[in-house]
Design a protein around this nucleic acid. Structure first.
Length: 331
DNA sequence: CATTAGCA
DNA sequence: GCTAATGA
């Protein structure tokens, strides 16, 4: 393995982290989504500059830096601190709310409710609360149960083992079924945060219960799937475990008709930046690309039928881009 | 931006 | 039918 240099970190990462922290507070605690967005865009715009910011003039006029954020950056530059951030940190109900949102299924709304009306101030209190089961829906209960496990990254080798089981069992059910694990795993990542599986079948339209059957066998016969968070005709979200010596992991399975499969495969493999990039080149070349299809855009704005796609390569070809192997898609 | 759960 | 939450 070629030596992996520690990827150079952003010279202003501390400031960026501070901005993100400010942003999260606005979103989760105050319920100020616009302030949240303001901090995020400010952070992303400073993330683009590649030298250490020394003076406020370095960023004056930068996109997304208005008067108030500029003032905070100024404080940071001169004192290394941001008053607002400090007081946010000192707010313990704010901290409690942020803790609650670590639980899958608990968003800002529910977190605020738990803290304000139930006076719950920590995960431990939530766990031991007498009315815990009434305070949380099924998803949230699973989120609480597996909180620590879900915060753990999944080593590639573990996913690899899951892959062999998954593919073997799925094709055993029906050999026309095709499945693969996408996301960062497919791009070669050494660890991922969850398992994302794409499934297709030539007659998927005829088999509305396909997903349910897959989930049922993976649950009952193999005990690979341990819990269901949600399931519909096209998307399953749940929990799996390769064997009891391993942690519980989040898994998503989605089913696509075969004519959409490769666009979905491309999209769910990512990464996000490549997706955006490809969407814009598509646009420039008179196409519209999304997770389902690629279509020609008429000058009047009319869309053609979805173009035939039988591989990811076809999509790159339409766009006159050089094909990128999955591991080359980390932009 | 679309899919699901859950509630009133 | 609406609202919250996930994800990507």
């Amino acid at each position: 393995m070629a030596a992996k240099r520690k990827l150079a970190e952003n010279p202003n990462s501390e400031l960026i982290d501070f901005l993100h922290e400010l942003a999260d507070y606005e979103k989760n605690v105050s319920r100020m989504i616009h302030k949240y967005n303001a901090y995020r865009k400010a952070a992303s715009s400073i993330a683009k500059i590649d030298h250490k910011i020394q003076s406020i003039t370095d960023i004056k006029g930068l996109e997304g830096i208005g008067k108030k954020i500029a003032a905070k950056i100024e404080q940071y530059l001169s004192t290394g601190k941001i008053k607002k951030l400090e007081t946010n940190r000192g707010d313990e109900t704010g901290a409690a709310i942020n803790q609650m949102t670590r639980v899958m299924g608990i968003g800002p709304t529910h977190a605020n409710k738990l803290v304000h009306q139930e006076k719950i101030t920590s995960i431990d209190e939530l766990r031991s609360h007498p009315k815990r089961d009434q305070l949380l829906n099924k998803t949230q209960q699973l989120g609480l149960k597996y909180l620590e496990e879900f915060e753990q990254k999944i080593p590639r080798d573990e996913i690899k083992q899951m892959e062999t089981i998954l593919l073997r069992e799925i094709t055993a059910m029906d050999n026309l079924l095709r499945a693969e694990i996408v996301g960062s795993y497919r791009r070669g990542a050494t660890a991922s945060s969850d398992i994302d599986v794409l499934v297709t079948h030539p007659a998927v339209a005829k088999l509305p219960s396909l997903l349910h059957k897959i989930v049922e066998t993976l649950t009952k016969q193999f005990h690979f799937i341990t819990d269901t968070i949600s399931i519909g005709d096209s998307k399953f979200m749940g929990v799996c475990q390769i064997d009891t010596s391993k942690l519980h992991r989040r898994i998503d399975i989605r089913v696509f008709p075969s004519e959409q499969y490769y666009c979905a495969l491309l999209y769910f493999t990512g990464n996000d930046q490549l997706n955006r990039h490809m969407r814009i080149v598509a646009q420039e070349q008179g196409y519209k690309l999304n997770e389902y299809s690629i279509q020609k855009v008429g000058s009047t704005g009319t869309l053609s039928k979805p173009l035939p796609v039988t591989s990811e390569r076809d999509i790159f070809d339409y766009l006159q881009m050089d094909y990128k192997e999955p591991h080359e898609r980390n932009m």
